[in-house]
Design a protein around this nucleic acid. Structure first.
Lengths: 319, 319
DNA sequence: TCAAAAGTGTTATCCTTACACCCATGT
DNA sequence: ACATGGGTGTAAGGATAACACTTTTGA
């Protein structure tokens, strides 16, 4: 049952990559054009799979080898089209890698991801003034709803997604999309103005609304961060971003950087140890300041040993 | 940065849907062509989004309205191409719905999903002979590896994915792909024979290897089942498949049908109740046999009230 | 000697698991 | 009366969250 081909002539396939690395403990993403774009390129049909196509393209474009990769999402909204009006289907990927320093100096193009989402960093507690400003704009938008049910719904979404008391670090995408819908980020204005050309509320300045990106690349970035934050809890993904040897303090700092939240030291250590994720190398380092710390390495075997956790369902009969 | 268009001319976008419903308590999937195909069709570029395109197509093709839908995965392997050699990019979706009975008689096209994956049904305990047969074929394949490391890896994958003692119901896709790699399902033979035309081990008969599908539709189905099984544990997705009112016994049977495993009655009830997912309607039914059961309904508010679970990380400082 | 980070011990609480039993209906 | 599914109580064990404290280095 091959589909009719008539309908799909005007489609372009684009691959996007959210390439993540930890640089000096801070989460960074690989960008082009001074931070305005994610690495992206066409799917060349001589590649056997999408992933190999992506790898080739990104490595050529950024001179940076990719490590672990997984597919994120495929977007094809009408708002996306290239100059000639061809519909763009963009297939996005998340890639984890270690920072690649070539010839002694740092490659350009790495951006701290919290520059795009300043409200997502709660490592030092909530940024009160920033959050208050966002909530003000969002509540104003909610109250401007055309009818009562819409208004209730908007208010509910705002209070849940941005609730400081029970902050959920996984809702990166929802929060960005809410700001987008509310017209508080510049990307929304560009889109709406182009199509409906109706005047729109002023977006927040970058200091509050974060740095913008072109097209929907910031949405893709939000998708990638959300996926990483969610998955870090039940899959050993952090290790893809760590050097071979590390201290438990460094490991905790890495998770904190990704999740954007401070963690409880002792309980974090117990968790790691109890899951059997790491083993001591025998060596120690004094580089972290204070008392020298034991070095650990990731136990790669674990990926095969256990099909990882699972159940959560109250099964009957113990085999 | 619009990509060069040269490379992508020979691409066709296809949408696939895994449409799931519970019929008489058994999980079914909507198919065409006597069970050999999933509903699928072209992405017509006059649709604003992929989802609306999918909905329109499926509803026209099957006369069945879709409920909740989510994107599954985008495939574009070289092995997939249409008659004229154009590359096919297939974007697949999972859709949940209630059975739709029109004019008193059942629509055709619904297939019990365990016909495609008989080894995935552990509701009545493991199917020993079936599993033994699969393991025999898989171990044979592992031992036929070209070198020692490959052999070790294959053996490990086989023992983990098909281990009866610690069965993980989420590994639907991994298990199917292992059988595919081992040449035990007919789909693998079709593909390999077409390209490499080298003789291949005989596939298992349908009674063991399950019913085959055309193209890679069975892989897409496996992806859908795996997603549903994984997500059912932390998102209230079952309710999309239930009638408005139901008993706790029916709810448990539904989860068991999807997960393919028997659950512990009391603990299941406690879990549901403690999560505040349902509320009593006040009515009871005697249709289930035995003592009449209370009827419950899903508390839709919960979707908004809680951003659902989350943490799992050992956070510091209680706000 | 003091700041900084590493590392240890312990307790209360909650959730999960497992057991054993009673209840209300139809046949 | 008895089979069938509905519904309840409760105790043991493990994981989590929250305490406070000691150790070893560099400056």
């Amino acid at each position: 049952m091959p589909p009719a081909t008539e309908h799909v002539r005007n489609v372009t396939i684009e691959l996007n990559a959210v390439v993540v690395a930890l640089i000096d403990g801070a989460p960074h993403v690989l960008t082009l054009d001074d931070g305005a774009l994610l690495p992206s390129g066409p799917f060349e049909s001589d590649h056997p799979t999408l992933q190999t196509g992506l790898r080739a393209w990104v490595e050529r474009q950024t001179r940076h080898p990719l490590g672990y990769t997984e597919q994120l999402y495929t977007f094809a909204d009408r708002s996306r089209a290239d100059a000639s009006g061809r519909r763009i289907v963009s297939i996005s990927y998340l890639a984890l890698t270690r920072e690649h320093v070539e010839a002694g100096r740092r490659e350009p193009g790495w951006q701290d991801w919290y520059r795009y989402f300043p409200w997502e960093d709660w490592r030092a507690g909530g940024a009160e003034p920033l959050l208050r400003a966002l909530l003000k704009g969002l509540r104003h938008w909610a109250d401007a709803a055309p009818d009562a049910p819409t208004k209730r719904l908007r208010r509910q979404r705002v209070e849940i997604d941005f609730d400081a008391e029970s902050w959920n670090e996984d809702l990166v995408l929802q929060r960005y999309e809410l700001l987008y819908e509310a017209g508080l980020v510049p990307e929304a204005i560009a889109t709406r103005a182009g199509r409906a050309r109706r005047p729109i509320t002023h977006a927040l300045p970058p200091s509050l609304g974060g740095m913008a990106m072109r097209h929907d690349h910031r949405r893709i970035l939000a998708t990638g961060i959300a996926r990483l934050r969610a998955k870090i809890k039940y899959r050993p993904m952090v290790f893809e971003l760590m050097p071979p040897d590390f201290t438990l303090g460094q490991l905790q700092a890495a998770v904190e950087a990704l999740a954007g939240r401070p963690l409880h030291k002792q309980n974090f250590r117990r968790l790691i140890e109890q899951q059997g994720l790491v083993e001591e190398t025998g060596a120690t380092t004094a580089e972290t300041g204070g008392r020298p710390a034991k070095l650990y390495r990731f136990r790669r075997e674990i990926l095969l040993e256990r099909a990882v956790a699972g159940s959560k369902l109250p099964l009957a009969r113990p085999a």
